[in-house]
Amino acid sequence: MQVKVRLHNPRRDLEIEGPITIINLLARLDLNREAVLVVRDGELVPGDESLSDGDSIEIRPVISGGAS
């Protein structure tokens, strides 16, 4: 069992070996912390929290919008 990670735009799933903190996970995936939120079971997960094998999270993009 690894940490299951769902990403968007395009939607895809990854598995990452735990334990790993949110900050390190985002760095490993080359994601800017300003541009995403991490959600587990419908709740926000703070950056200093450590994920363990078996955890399932969603990395939700927050950047949106056209030019209007």
Binding site: N9, A35, R60, P61, G66, A67
Partner: peptide, 18 residues
């Protein structure tokens, strides 16, 4: 709605935000 508008992909506004 979490997913981005399919028409917006690659537009300048999003690149400025990044």
């Amino acid at each position: 709605l979490v997913d981005e508008c399919p028409m917006a992909a690659g537009n300048k506004h999003l690149s400025y935000k990044s």
